[in-house]
Design a protein around this nucleic acid. Structure first.
Lengths: 188, 188
DNA sequence: GAGTCCACCTTACTCGAAGTAGGTTACTTC
DNA sequence: GAAGTAACCTACTTCGAGTAAGGTGGACTC
């Protein structure tokens, strides 16, 4: 049911997708959709929740299987970019979650926060304690995590239409950039 | 006229905003809006175009006034974060441009590309020629630019609800992260 | 085994907002 | 002053989100 909705939403976009169409594809009548998911927004929310949960699962798994900090970073990113490649529709929904405005989106913020928290603690783990404490207090750790997430999302969108780029290559780019910084690229 | 629309769109969100309301606030009738901007999407598009143009103006100006690469980076980011702080509504629209799905958004991609191109050439400028050539060929330069843009957007969203953070501080965070990389934070 | 309840599902509606048809005013041009 | 036209409005159509009210079948009571 949610799967069907994901397909329709990602095909036409949230606004253009009609509940009637979804209902028909599911093989059920419209009031049923409203029974299960309160509203059109509710349905979209459920879809996004599902997609995010799946994304979270694969990245956490990848991270957990790593030993060093740098490897965790690389594996996590690789899992992320691979997910994008293999689940375009889910990814499309996650990207467009901004269509939800106001209160209902707050629950999603929680999910997102979990994502950044994962990265933040990850970074905290492989940082020496004193530096980590300072970074944490200033909010720098959170900021860095947010930055990583945003950068990767954008990178994923960019790489979508470049078929010569495998998830491995993109993850490699991201790791290099992140780990070494621009100073390295600049050669200084 | 566009200004009014920006206010309404950013207040209720694209879907919830009604053309009637906008028309009334403007002091004109609905068909007029359709005369000038083809459709609701068209109106939103015009608003976003306007907002993006303004954003682009201030960042380019900041970059042009800088001499070294690192300073250009810092000043550009500062201009960006200041813009966000001072033009919440415009920023809100830019963030939600994803509401436009399909063809009309292509024109926006162009604008966005200009933004990343600016960053890419900027980075190319302060990189030694040989390194730059290699980076360019592999697409790394573009990738880095995309990453920067995405990271900053996310960072901007995050910093919006933290009033203790001035644009200066956030820009500083971003510069440090970008320039030095995570390795620096990790203390290794 | 007839009556009653209830979960599940449908058809057929309301209502609000996007988009449009066609008319009106007022101003320019010859 | 008639013809044309630009700018604008009122009043409509259309479409889709959300809902009301009713029907069907199975389980449960006595």
């Amino acid at each position: 049911m949610i799967q069907v909705a994901v397909v329709v939403f990602s095909k036409h976009g949230y606004t253009a997708a009609s509940m009637d169409e979804i209902a028909e594809h599911v093989g059920v009548s419209k009031p049923m959709l409203y029974e299960y998911f309160k509203s059109k927004e509710g349905l979209l929310l459920a879809c996004i929740r599902e997609a995010r949960a799946e994304l979270r699962r694969v990245t956490e798994q990848a991270v957990a299987a790593s030993s060093t900090g740098e490897e965790a970073l690389r594996q996590g990113l690789l899992a992320f970019f691979s997910f994008i490649r293999d689940h375009r529709q889910s990814w499309s929904l996650i990207r467009h979650e901004a269509n939800l405005v106001g209160k209902p989106a707050e629950e999603l913020e929680t999910t997102r926060q979990q994502q950044t928290d994962l990265i933040a603690t990850l970074m905290g783990d492989f940082t020496d304690p004193e530096t980590a404490r300072i970074a944490e207090e200033s909010g720098l750790l959170q900021a860095a995590a947010e930055f990583v997430v945003g950068g990767c999302e954008r990178l994923a969108i960019w790489s979508e239409e470049r078929e010569d780029l495998t998830p491995e290559i993109v993850a490699e780019y991201a790791v290099n950039l992140l780990w070494g910084g621009l100073a390295q690229i600049a050669g200084r």
